[in-house]
Write a protein that binds this DNA or RNA. Sequence first.
DNA 1: AACGGGTTTCAGTAATTTCTGAAATCTTCG
DNA 2: CGAAGATTTCAGAAATTACTGAAACCCGTT
Lengths: 186, 186
Amino acid sequence: MRLTPAMERYVLHWGEMGARWSVNRSVAQIHALLYLAPRPLTAEEIADTLAIARSNVSMSLKELLAWGLVQRTPVRGDRRDHFEALRDNWEILTRIVEERKKREIDPTLSILRACAMEAAADGQTAAETRQRIEGLLEFLETLSLWYDQVKGLPRPVLVGLMRMGGRVARFVPRARVAGKRRARGG
Amino acid sequence: MRLTPAMERYVLHWGEMGARWSVNRSVAQIHALLYLAPRPLTAEEIADTLAIARSNVSMSLKELLAWGLVQRTPVRGDRRDHFEALRDNWEILTRIVEERKKREIDPTLSILRACAMEAAADGQTAAETRQRIEGLLEFLETLSLWYDQVKGLPRPVLVGLMRMGGRVARFVPRARVAGKRRARGG
DNA sequence: AACGGGTTTCAGTAATTTCTGAAATCTTCG
DNA sequence: CGAAGATTTCAGAAATTACTGAAACCCGTT
């Protein structure tokens, strides 16, 4: 398919962005192309449009399918595979976040737990260091818990929260303000 | 400085994590080391501990200083530079997010605006494609606005919100629920 | 079971990124 | 000013990552 200059700019930039987040350039470009394309494309069309090898397209599509960002769509009267990107921006965002959390944050939590235990037991790691590991573990666990709760909210509620911006602050109970539980009296 | 096995595990893992987020391994390892170290370290100590070249340490520290994650700390009676990592986890997180937003999200917004304008004017980009670019632009602008508001909240309020988890949903006004403004009436 | 269109795999090559060591520079002190 | 210690720079080496093309594979059709 023909890329208009606007599309080309978009695709190239997306490729760069991908690279900065450790998503390989071809993968990101293909994603961008499918996201923009007004109809499902075949692997070959993708290869031609982006001027990359057919085999590269194949591997990259496999990756995108694994992330759930692209799906195969059958097209009547054509036995080639056609591919189409997920279009809902919220859905795209949550898939990416979910996947990276699973691949990176969760393993990090395990390792931190292991480090914390080992440091507590080995009798040679400085107390300060131990506390730092434990503190980070706790911090990440809190964030992770928060994320698990928020991701479960219905989409419209999420959008509503977003729209409220900083105004949600109003609803944080005084007593909950960290470290201030007993502050009223003292 | 001597690394205990727990520290070594932590440092190595952090290096890997860095790599997956496009932070070079040495930079991430140095950050991890300084984060754990119970006292400020000299560049040479860092190089010895991690077994990497002195010059590499120098460049990496420069990077970490630029991110504001590490600072120089003078030590009485020693004219060498000593380095120390920022310890507050919230502060670390917000610095990283802020910096990456500035370097990656903001430029992306500019480019999307340019693409949207170009696509609207060129008379050859498919209507669907134009809408997709505009939709993404709007989506990212909303997120960006939300982030700007939330990052301005005082730390204790942020922590409070986090602790509330999904319960904040309760406070989203019905009328604000997206696309439902007129839904009450039927 | 052989053909043909389509797809995937993978070994080797190309490109990119990271790291090093030698040299240059800066800084402090006598 | 100049020596000694400390730091930074940078060209090239090493390591990593991405990409390609040829070959293998799959699967419906005849």
